[in-house]
């Protein structure tokens, strides 16, 4: 559905995105992860036809994002990093305006307001909306045209846990309904929960691409941490037969209080690969 091949963007001699290649399958929720300034938003802007690549190619559903820009527009929805809504207009007016641009009727506007739980606040001006409400409206706006590919740029940034959970639930439902989702975030747990596959980008370069589980297994420690009834803590290696016997003895004697795997988190993997923290 989405394909990037050696995608590169240079701004005044500074390489923002450096020969990035990947593909996203139809119906896949794809996470594009990286620290601030890694090149996530620039990649999204190139994929959605907002920015010309300096070199390389990208396509959506077979249409080149530069030459076939007109063809890709009806197929995509974008949730921008900024909450770019018309503040002096109401929620409904915002959606109706964009519905007109897409040639979509008012029925779809009402459906989406209902879906994101803003029907009862639809007449309120955006300037009195909370961050969470604005973000939900942005998601609704991006879905007006029933997009085949949905791009979400940091959709839960700065949201309270409840609002973030609501947005994640919507993303999950969209993925289940077969919408291709391209999600950029620097929240690794979010990507872990939602994405079928994730790609890591750092300093404009793609440094890893796989399923969250595969990445965690590849870079995690094959160890467990054990807490016994005498409050003593022990580390056992999964590949050591002696450790396996020891574990069996403790279990048999009923001495185990807790057992924790030492599987890496996505953040651990990123730090390991990028050599820097996520921020």
């Amino acid at each position: 559905m989405i394909k990037a091949s050696n995608l590169t963007r240079v701004f005044n001699g500074l390489i923002a995105v450096d020969q990035v290649s990947f593909h996203v399958d139809r119906g896949e929720v794809f996470g594009f992860l990286g620290h601030n300034g890694a090149g996530k938003t620039t990649t999204v802007r190139m994929l959605t036809g907002q920015l010309r690549p300096t070199s390389g190619h990208a396509s959506i559903d077979g249409h080149d994002v530069v030459k076939g820009r007109t063809a890709i527009k009806p197929m995509i929805g974008v949730v921008f990093e900024n909450q770019n809504l018309y503040e002096r207009m109401s929620g409904r007016e915002n959606l109706r305006f964009f519905a007109e641009l897409h040639g979509v009727g008012d029925k779809r506007v009402d459906e989406l307001l209902e879906m994101v739980g803003l029907s009862d606040r639809a007449k309120d001006k955006i300037k009195i909306y909370s961050n969470g409400m604005k973000q939900r409206l942005l998601v609704a706006r991006a879905l007006l045209n029933h997009p085949k590919a949905l791009f979400l740029d940091e959709p839960t940034r700065g949201l309270d846990p409840t609002s973030a959970r609501g947005i994640r639930r919507t993303i999950r439902e969209l993925g289940e309904q077969g919408t291709t989702v391209f999600l950029t975030t620097h929240y690794m747990e979010e990507a872990d929960q939602l994405c079928h596959r994730v790609a890591f980008i750092s300093e404009g370069k793609l440094i890893a691409l796989d399923t969250p589980r595969a990445l965690k297994l590849q870079y995690g420690l094959r160890k467990v941490s054990v807490l016994l009834d005498d409050q003593s803590q022990h580390e056992l290696t999964l590949d050591n037969p002696a450790d396996a016997n020891q574990m069996a003895d403790w279990m048999g004697a009923g001495r185990l209080l807790t057992v924790h795997s030492q599987e890496a988190t996505l953040e651990d993997v990123f730090v390991h690969l990028a050599g820097r923290e996520l921020q």
């Binding site: 959605t48 036809g49 527009k73 974008v78 900024n82 770019n84 018309y86 503040e87 641009l101 040639g103």
Partner: peptide, 14 residues
């Protein structure tokens, strides 16, 4: 300034 132009330009509008 408010980036609403970006939102317009990803619709079938030039």
């Amino acid at each position: 300034d408010k980036k609403t132009l970006d939102a317009i330009l990803v619709t079938p509008t030039n």
